[in-house]
Each structure stands twice: as C-alpha cells, then as structure tokens.
Design a protein around this nucleic acid. Sequence first.
DNA 1: ATTAATAAATATACAGTGTTTAGTTATTTA
DNA 2: TAAATAACTAAACACTGTATATTTATTAAT
Lengths: 229, 229
Amino acid sequence: MVRPTLKKQIPNLQEAIKDAAWKQIAREGAPALSLRAIARKLKITAPAIYNYFSDRDALVTALIIDAYTSFGDSQLAARDEVPPDDVVGRMTAIGLAYRQWAHTYPQRYQLIFGTPIPGYKAPLMEVLPSAARSLSILVSVVEQLRLAGRLNIKSFPKVQEEFKAGFEMWKKYGGEADIISLSIAMLIWARVHGIVSLEIAGNLPPFGTSGDDLYLYEMNSITQQFIRG
Amino acid sequence: MVRPTLKKQIPNLQEAIKDAAWKQIAREGAPALSLRAIARKLKITAPAIYNYFSDRDALVTALIIDAYTSFGDSQLAARDEVPPDDVVGRMTAIGLAYRQWAHTYPQRYQLIFGTPIPGYKAPLMEVLPSAARSLSILVSVVEQLRLAGRLNIKSFPKVQEEFKAGFEMWKKYGGEADIISLSIAMLIWARVHGIVSLEIAGNLPPFGTSGDDLYLYEMNSITQQFIRG
DNA sequence: ATTAATAAATATACAGTGTTTAGTTATTTA
DNA sequence: TAAATAACTAAACACTGTATATTTATTAAT
C-alpha cells in the first residue's frame, strides 16, 4: 500500500511531450510526427512516452483535443468582441475568425479535419466535448437569430428521427439550442469548410480564384440566405 | 546499342502494382499503403517496384491520376445522360454523381482531397491534366448556362489579375470557357465538397444531421442562387 | 553462334518507425 | 528500515521506404 507521486527531471513531461509534438508538426507537418523524434528532443527514450500516452494514437487524440480547444477559444473571442445585439456582426466575426484560425494554424486544421496520421481514426467519445464546444459558438449565434425571429428556415429540411438521439448527445456539450439551429449551423459550417479546406490543401489558387474574395462572397451568400430583416 | 523490350512473368506489372495498391487501399485504407505489402501480394521483391515507379510518391501520384480519371468519367457520364438543352437537369445530375462517386469510392475521394499519405504532396503539374478534366464537366455546364444568358453573376467577385495566368494554364486541359464560369464552378465545387468531405470523414452524422437532406437542400440553394429563368 | 549491352529482377543492407518486454532506479509511505 | 510501485532505460521485434550491388534474362550486332 504505497502510492508514490510522479517524478521527473522535466517538470511536466506530459505537457512537454505535447509541446514537442506540436513543434514537430509545425515544422515538418503532421504526418512526420514521430514518438522517437519527440523522445530525442526531450532526451528521454521513446518507451518513456508510454507512461503518459497509451500509444501514438492517444497522443494524437490529445493533440486534436487541444486543437479543438484552440479553435473554440478563437471562435468564442471573435463572437464576444461584437455586442450581443449585433447578431449579423457576430456571424460575420466568427466566420472570418474561422478562416483566419485555419490559416494561422494550417497543421492544426489538417489534424482535425484531414486524415494526416496513418491509420488514425479519432475516437468520437473523447473528442466530442471539445469538438461540440467549438461548434457551439456558431450554433449559439444561429439560435440567437432564431429566437429573434430572424432565421429564415423556409424549406429547410426537417431532421430525421434517427438523428435526434445524436442531437440530444450533442446538447450535453454544445449547450441548449433548437435542432433547426444546429442543422443550419452544420450547413454554414460545411460551406466555410468547403472553401477553407480546399485552400489549405492548396487546391484553390491554381484554378484562378482568390480565396479572399470567394470567402467574403460566400459569407454574404450565407447571411443573405439565412438571415432576414 | 541494344534495346531489349520489357519482360515479366506478370503480363503488365505496372498495372498489376496499381491494382494491388487499390485493393490494399480499399481493404485497409490509404495510409496503410505499403510497397512491401504490394510486393508480397505479387510475389516479387519490393525494390522491383522501383523499375515502374521511381518511389512510393510516384505510385501515389499515379493512383491519384487514376482516381481523378475515374471521377471525371462518372461526371461525364452523368452529364451526358441528360439532354443538352436541359441545363438545370445536367447540373443536378453531375451534383448527385459527385456525391455518389465519393460514397462509392471513399478511399479514392480521400486520396484526392485528403492527405492520407505521410509526407506526400501531389505534384501539381502531373496531376493537373486529369484534375482539370474532371472539373471541366461542371465548368462546361456553367459555361452553357452563361452562354444561354441564364447565369446569375450579379455581385460575383472579379478574378484577380495574378490568377489569370493560372486560368490560361487551366484552359489547356479544362477546355474553353469564360473565367467567370470557372470561378462560379469553383464555388459550387467548394460547396458540394464541404458537405461531402465532412460526410466521408464521419463528421456530419454524429451531430444530428442527414447528409442526404442537407445535400439536396444545398443543390437547390446552388441552382436558386446561380441560375435564373 | 558468340558476344556485348541492357532491362528487370533479387539479395542485402541501412536507417527509420511504433511497440513490447524485462530490468533498473528512485521515491514514498508504512 | 523495508516494502511497494511509479518512472524510466535497454534491448529487441516486426515493420517501413529506399539505396546499392549483383544476378538473370533478353536482345542486337558482330
């Protein structure tokens, strides 16, 4: 019956491992992530990492959660810089923040939305809280529009029964909102994600269109289509 | 001065390697692609592959070109099944074909649009012909709308000067079209890609929305916004 | 027919990866 | 002081892509 506390030369090794991982990702890209390289940088042996992460995928999951948190923070900050009554302004602000965050941290963006780690599949249950939180900022603005009667939901498809359970689960982490607000938020999310993911992957520029203009145009399409008044 | 012809036990080894690669990708996913595993399946040694592909990335590039070709074929078939005068019908047909192809070959889709191969970056110049061809079907329909005076380009952003050179390059493989048609095609492409990529990555369903309904709604948004008459 | 040239395959090896196992060191509580 | 155990290292395994050298087989010219 003995319970020794943790001990290490490096004060907080768990955080140090993640830091080293991020630096490696930023410098050489997510696919180059290597436990052995991290260990070399920290002057420990590779198996020592297994005291803090059960395997490489667990480390990646932790990084993804951090990335979602960073993304959610930027969404939250963008929203709250605009007065609550200026709903359209808030929508615009988080839309711009979305793209700006992706351009500031392309590797984090790819880590979340791409599949840059060989054989890795994010475990939904672990990632959901931070993922739902980051999406919840957009949902909150859409919900605010709905409550103000300014949400144009004409002809928007009804949510199927089978997905209502998923919605209830989402609310646990994403906060209170009507399901129609979540649905419309998903569509808005898909639109900005469409442009930004093509941009980040380098598939947009050579075809003759600027991401800037296209993105602004698309944000205008969104507000025109879904906001009235 | 001797020029021996190719010789092999397997009739067309180059194609056999690609076939084995596709089977491996379909069974275990793109990141699991392994030259050694391909060699084992074909009962040859791994270095023998280097007689047909300069390295692993060259094989991946060949696979991507094949995937683009397969995608382009499905777009072409979908378009030409609808009479030329029914332009809206053609737009709908290729839109549905886009999503259906992605769902039929999710690994091919991810190979093109994701980044599933560690450290791989597609060489634009090699991929451009097949990529431009596959996009050209959508562009041709948009161009057809433009020529018929049914394209709604009100307030669509002008293309920046610096990208006009890229447009000229694109025309070489994508065919004759006005630059505004390409731009609008890009935006339409981004929209469908936004939904489909989230679907394929498994990020849509858990949050309570059906890809089916959302996609149909979005295709309607597109026709409403860009087609008049 | 013999010989030279060369394509295509193999054998071998190197440096890298994630991970497992066994053993060691250090710390903490009883 | 002694037992318990967390945290680490050392060594090894089974992989990976790829470079080099060598062998085999085929072709073309003499």
